[in-house]
Amino acid sequence: MQAAPSGREASYTSGVVLMCAGVACLSANDAVAKALTSHYPPLQILFLRNVVALPFTVLIAITMGGWQALKTYRPAAHLLRGALWVCATMMFFTSFIYLGLAEATALIFVAPFFITVISALFLGEKVHIWRWLAVLFGFLGVLVVIRPGGATFQAASLLPVATALVYALLMLSARWVDARESVWTLLVYLTGTAALISVFIVPFVWVPVRLEDLWLFAAIAVFGTAGMTMMTQAFRLTPAVIVAPLDYTALVWATLFGWLIWRESPDAATFLGAAIIIASGVFTIFRQKGKAA
């Protein structure tokens, strides 16, 4: 008789399932956002997504962390993070107007390399030669995808790269949040501050919402909130070295959604560049795990 899985094995399995489901939801979120960009400005999409998602995010935070999850000790840090989130999302959604879903998704995977560079140059962290080689390898993958100077180069390809840079700053800014605050607190304030910041700008770009698009705005809020919640829980249940590489399955979903909805077919260079970026990212994750062991 086969032995029942241990508590740790069950936890790891749950984490893997949650991570895969969360990545799929966020990929669906991106696909819906790309569909909406044909009728609405990215800022309006971001604003409505956060306004609709905020009540659900608060409910999840209270359920998972209690009322304490709504308390913050450093509101200024959350305001900064909200501003970074607005900038990153705006650029990423704007890139959907010009790029295929898979291409934009592949390029945003360079965020871990920006984190490495910023940590070394500005935060005084020691980065060993192997991580620098991984950064250079990942940058090579970016060049393969965007092909600067080539006939197929688009300036819009720089938008996901810029998004990755701002996203890296967002991840590093979590260090400025009070250690007493949970990941659920971060989730609530990230959604809330992004809605607060965008509400002052969105009236200048507002486009009347069509009745037939209401379900799409609801969908982007549901997929985005569900994805972030499941991925957060996955990292709580399972070591990052196991679940973090699963984030790259987003490229599979992006390729699938892009083909099914827009008949997008990424070329060989995009797949090659994405493979290089993913390989260097996975190497960085396992190298970091080896140092921590």
Rank of each mutant, 00 (worst) to 15 (best):
T185P: 09
S173L: 04
A168T: 08
F137I: 12
L186V: 15
V207C: 04
L186R: 10
L211D: 12
Y167W: 15
Q154Y: 03
R180A: 14
G141Q: 05
L211M: 15
F137D: 07
F204K: 12
A155I: 10
W132C: 11
A151L: 04
V135M: 07
T193V: 12
F200H: 06
V183S: 10
L140Y: 12
V135L: 14
F153I: 02
W176P: 03
V166Y: 03
V145I: 14
A134N: 03
T191W: 05
A194L: 14
G192R: 05
A179M: 10
W184H: 08
L158W: 14
L196F: 15
A164D: 05
V161Q: 00
V144R: 00
F204R: 10
V161C: 05
S198F: 05
G141P: 04
L211K: 12
W132K: 10
P208D: 03
Y167Q: 00
L169W: 14
W176M: 13
V145W: 01
V135N: 02
L158I: 14
R180F: 08
A194K: 00
T152N: 07
P208W: 06
A151W: 03
L172I: 14
L169S: 13
F153N: 09
F153D: 01
E181D: 10
V188T: 04
V188W: 02
L159A: 01
I197Q: 04
A164C: 11
G192P: 11
R175W: 12
W132G: 12
M171Q: 12
